[in-house]
Amino acid sequence: MNNTKDNEMTLIFKSKSANESFARATVGAFASQLDPTLDELADIKTAVSEAVTNAIIHGYNNTTGDVHIHCEIKDRTIYIEISDKGCGIKNLAQAMQPLYSGCPEMERSGMGFTVMETFMDSLDVSSTLDKGTTVRMSKTLRA
């Protein structure tokens, strides 16, 4: 049976850092139809900000490409997929280690994936060198 509350949206934008706030605000606005708590909303926006920043800094390495976000709502769960068609991640296990930064000279904390993992219920990252990276996250909101 179709749940009339189920919903989805797609957002495509250029990999410019000015779009980081646009991306998290848009996903936050989409998630707001689930009446999230302030903490839940902050968790989602922070996780999205981390994934989008990774796509811009590491995926496209400050060249310009498209960042795709696809969100789905099923019952009380929001599924968020953020992908780029950038350089990909050579060593994904290393990149996902807390405090590891691929750009130490940029003063990154290396906490991006840890934040996503902590603030969301699930995190799955797939990456192919020279093809790009896709981050899939989900979070079930309290009723």
Binding site: K45, T46, S49, E50, E107, S109, M111, V115
Partner: peptide, 13 residues
């Protein structure tokens, strides 16, 4: 009103 890990990097720096 909002901070992500970029703020953490800034403070550690």
């Amino acid at each position: 009103t909002f901070m992500d890990s970029s703020g953490i990097g800034l403070m550690i720096g």
